[in-house]
Design a protein around this nucleic acid. Sequence first.
DNA 1: GAGCTAACCATAGTAAGACTATGGTAGTCT
DNA 2: AGACTACCATAGTCTTACTATGGTTAGCTC
Lengths: 108, 108
Amino acid sequence: MRTEIPPGTLYMLILKSLALLGAQHGYGIALHIQQVTGDVLQVEEGSLYPALQRMLLKGWVKAEWRQTENKRRARYYTLTPAGRKQLVAEVREFERAMAAIRRVIQPV
Amino acid sequence: MRTEIPPGTLYMLILKSLALLGAQHGYGIALHIQQVTGDVLQVEEGSLYPALQRMLLKGWVKAEWRQTENKRRARYYTLTPAGRKQLVAEVREFERAMAAIRRVIQPV
DNA sequence: GAGCTAACCATAGTAAGACTATGGTAGTCT
DNA sequence: AGACTACCATAGTCTTACTATGGTTAGCTC
């Protein structure tokens, strides 16, 4: 049983994946998220590629067409400095929000 | 500096508030969330009331017009059994998703 | 070489949800 | 009278994650 990506967290997941993996193509990012979470989170292609486009526009990543090891053409994404800053900000905001939510739902 | 309600968590916050407070009106729910989180989370009225309407339709809560202590008219919401089940399910799904996300963003 | 699968990319269209903006009623206090 | 607080509600906007769809190409099997 898998879980949909919680709205508002996709950018953070992608940014963190790129921070870890370095230059990586969309498919690789999706695989990484799926594997790390043990198939709990699965990013659909229809979510991922539009998100990457938006991130390009925002200047958080840059892209470059290259060959994969399998000789396929793929678009490799890399974090920009703005993307790194965004990642830090998103994680901080996320932790802050989660701590607050926990204060509400913690009382059994 | 306040944080917007993370999308997808509002139902859970409302359900939990009602579980704690018993019958309560919208304004009281909003106040409770704001106070418990130390003003980190603030539910806007334009989010809260539509959410309550949807929850009525889903059968998670029932509503009743009553007088407040201040002699104002207010709509008091109460959890239904379906609402209690929904709360449990939402909390479980939330924890599951958060654990997965943490697995992605944890690696420093 | 035909057909299949996996590895890749992309867009259009839909639905959901949280917001801003707006507007209303009715007590209480000055 | 006016202002403020306590309450409710809706319309409209924006963002985002999804489904559905469609495409290309490498490598494998038959």
